[in-house]
Design a protein around this nucleic acid. Sequence first.
DNA 1: AAAGTAACATGAAGCACAGGTTTT
DNA 2: AAAACCTGTGCTTCATGTTACTTT
Length: 596
Amino acid sequence: MLGGEGESSAYSAAKEEEKRTSPAADGDESAAGNRYSEQQGMGSDRYYVPHAISKQNPEASFLPYTPGGAVYSPPGAGRYPSSLHLGSVLPPAGYSPSAHFSPSYQHGQNLGCLYPPYAGSGSALSNMALAGGAGAGPGLRAQVYLCNRPLWLKFHRHQTEMIITKQGRRMFPFLSFNIAGLNVTSHYNVFVEVVLADPNHWRFQGGKWVTCGKADNSSQGNKVYIHPESPNTGAHWMRQEISFSKLKLTNNKGTSHNTSQMIVLQSLHKYQPRLHIVEVSEDGVEDISSDVKTQCFTFPETQFIAVTAYQNTDITQLKIDHNPFAKGFRDNYDSMYTAPESDRLTPSPNDSPRAHQIVPGTRYTMQPLFQDQFVNNLPQNRFYNCERAVPQTNSLLSPQTEDVASQRWFVTSVQQGGSCTMSASNKLDLTPYEGEYSGSLLPYGIKSLSMQTTHALSYYPDSPFTTMSAGWGSRAAAYQRKVPPSLPWSPRPSPAAGFSEEPGKAKAQTEEEVHSTEALISSWTESQTSALSPNKAESYSVACKRRRLSLNGPSTDSSSVSSKCEDLSSAAPSSYSKEAPPTKGMASYYSFYANP
DNA sequence: AAAGTAACATGAAGCACAGGTTTT
DNA sequence: AAAACCTGTGCTTCATGTTACTTT
């Protein structure tokens, strides 16, 4: 048992912190005046950004197209940017109102459209190698990578859907980033904005998403979710993954509570989340004097269609498979999670959904935060597109694949000229069935990194993530030593490459990662071959309507469950479990790390 | 017919409490 | 003996997808 008082107090502290940092704000806050009003109890006036928009372009009262990865902005839709400082999203000189579509959207419509490398992207990598330490100056650009990108890609392949409800529904996968390249002493606000990704209303017909008229532009309500730890120092943001797991999506425009945690969307519209990093003064007031201090990052693979009920059963199954809160709907839950560890091909999820998404690995030590956010290969044992999977083989779950599954992807922003960087592949909005991931996944100076939060640092000694967070890295190292080597899912090197912490082998390791990436790409294209089966649509109407099997079956007995728990608990050293309490908040998270 | 809503079952953590054990 | 700590239990809360019903 872990329930010490320290844990409780830590949890309480975390709760307090949460309350402190994200008090409820009014519902239809509008414009920049209220932009940060819910944060830190600060009055809206403190954050009022007078004419931040007009200072550059009066037309920017709506979100403009920006070649760096903006989103669709319908004429007259003045909502989104009004809540933002638009230093990063103002249109470039060549802005054309007729091009109100995100590059990704354009790609989706025009497969041949390629975007040139963005200015600055080319230097991003060099920056990446240099930035991240205390020497990082304010002019340096941040690099961001999507921690759970493989999982996002899995969903993206099927067109991600996100449930929206009146009371608000969390995103899954949720947004989780790592940031490098910030000035460790400067203060930043970090927030996510969700904007329309295209001008269409969508409908799910015949097993696929088709456009259905124009999007409703009159969307109202909050579109911004400010990370509850904002404002905070660059060191803080770079120390750990920045998770937006508490972010909720709603279709309730009139919601009057929890506004700070809710983003109001419209059903059957496609949206694109964007990450904003804004340098602020120590008290959280934004400095609008320099656009350099505002950076925006867009990950096309995080696009999603808001729905009130899942349309695509593939998405439903992915959610069930990966979201620990949906464990109860896993029809082969028992067989999957009660088997002996040695028989298990995939890491079982943490028993705690919360721990799963908050703890940096109480059991699967090497896994980063929010393990279930990462592809765990589980669906490979399942049957998307109504195809019962062949028995899982080890080849599907090679360490190499596991490494790939934990890849993360750096993105650098392009703030000058006011553009949001289209981060990863714009081709992502091509139907993934096109394949071509091998090229599109590594575009424009975006470097793929296969790293799990901990050992990745040893993989990439030159990475800013190595130096950016001495604490994180050192903690990770300490953490790493606690990994029970017998755990089958313990992150480990591929047999071929071997795992080495020796810096001299980092390069070879990097090459290995590239190969791993290719392996993943290959697996995608292969899987999509089946997805393109001409019987797909037909199968949708029959076998795809998967129903949850009764949990009262023969395999479902308490003993099996308990044995699973015993297995897991015995797998983790008792001392470890005591040292790593299931973190219920960042407070205990920190306390744990502060006391290795 | 399609979309939206609310109730529901499920799984898991948080929490309070009681009782037992260990330490001082 | 008292205090601190540990353990087990049961209730509450939360998040999930499903389902039936209502609304558009």
